[in-house]
Simulated assay, not measured.
Amino acid sequence: MMGSAHAPSASEAEPYSIFTPRHRKILTVLLGLASFASPLTANIYLPLLPLLQDQYHATAQAINLTITLYVVVQAVIPIFFAPTADQYGRRLVSLASLLVYTVGSIGLAINDAAGRRYPALLLLRALQAFGSSACATTIWGVTSDVCIPIERGAMIGPVLSISNLGVVLGPVVGGLVGWRTGHATWIFASMAIFSAATVVSVTPQDHALERHGRHPVAGLGWAVRYRAHPAVVLVLQAFAGFVKSLLFTFSNTLLIDVHPDRPSTAAAAASLTRSGLSGVGLAILQPLADSKGWAGLFTLLALLVGVSQGVVHLESPLISSIPPLQSHKIQTTFAQ
């Protein structure tokens, strides 16, 4: 009959992915390697701060500025990268950002070996942040491309596990190499080698938020205040990190479910907010610690976590009312 609409069958209406489980496993490894750069770069640098302060003849505040600038660039750049990735393809943006990261790392190694100029250190760290920030947001877009909503958690979990290794290994490697060699040249060179290897690898081929995160945060501050046994501090820190990772994974997976048409852009907006608040936190951390003490500071952080989780709880009826994704086939822009 003229004018009648074609009613899709049950099999047509059900979302499915054109990617096989084997393809998704390969992508999981590649995405994990690409996202590994951002936490590795941020955390491998921290044990080097006293060394850099001495060798670059800079104040502690000047060296801390390299961290602040890194966080600010990480917050802003994805806003420009993500819409490009959503429109023109994730693979192109990922490769371009990794190449920028490689150039920045090579520049840092050369600067540390040859001149040790502070302005170069500042600008090249910003270039590193520029390159590593895009991959941290495009992973959400690729996950949305290749997985139906019910399977996204199974893919993003291993990716974030690989990524979080950078948080664990970064300070250990940075401290060990810096202590053994007495300089940061090999640290920066290893970042360049890792990034170049990743480029070569990529080229061929109900969400409920737990409401317990505030307790280990406050406990950590009081344990430091009363000089508890190091094991107590480490256990509390590990538990706080676990809850943080849990909340991060749940909230970002929810975000790409709510915005399936622009997942990278949505992840970039979240990154801007998160990194922007991190930059503010870095700026006020020491003054607050001096005035309130570590126990008071961590108690304040725990209250902020509790308030934010309360807001999410109030919004949960609105979140649960979002209809399921109605697309018939999951397409991908990663291969473009």
Rank of each mutant, 00 (worst) to 15 (best):
residue 60 A to E: 07
residue 69 L to G: 02
residue 53 Q to L: 00
residue 203 T to N: 08
residue 163 S to V: 12
residue 185 T to F: 11
residue 213 G to M: 11
residue 235 V to I: 14
residue 78 P to T: 01
residue 103 V to P: 01
residue 42 A to R: 00
residue 14 E to V: 07
residue 136 A to E: 07
residue 50 P to Y: 12
residue 115 G to M: 15
residue 67 I to F: 05
residue 246 L to C: 12
residue 230 P to R: 11
residue 278 S to V: 12
residue 331 Q to A: 10
residue 117 R to E: 14
residue 180 R to A: 11
residue 36 F to G: 00
residue 220 L to A: 05
residue 77 I to H: 01
residue 56 Y to S: 00
residue 245 S to P: 05
residue 152 R to Y: 13
residue 177 V to W: 09
residue 322 I to Q: 09
residue 77 I to Q: 01
residue 225 R to E: 11
residue 197 A to V: 05
residue 230 P to M: 11
residue 26 I to N: 06
residue 106 I to C: 13
residue 83 P to D: 04
residue 109 A to M: 14
residue 132 S to T: 15
residue 258 V to A: 08
residue 308 S to N: 10
residue 85 A to S: 10
residue 157 G to Q: 03
residue 20 T to D: 09
residue 85 A to F: 02
residue 79 I to W: 03
residue 278 S to H: 06
residue 37 A to Y: 00
residue 37 A to M: 10
residue 88 Y to V: 02
residue 327 S to F: 09
residue 314 L to K: 15
residue 50 P to Q: 13
residue 108 L to T: 00
residue 285 L to G: 15
residue 1 M to H: 14
residue 173 V to T: 04
residue 147 C to Y: 14
residue 222 W to I: 09
residue 153 G to P: 09
residue 144 S to I: 04
residue 315 E to K: 14
residue 40 L to C: 01
residue 44 I to E: 00
residue 300 L to F: 10
residue 156 I to R: 01
residue 53 Q to R: 03
residue 36 F to M: 01
residue 84 T to L: 10
residue 211 R to Q: 15
residue 334 F to Q: 02
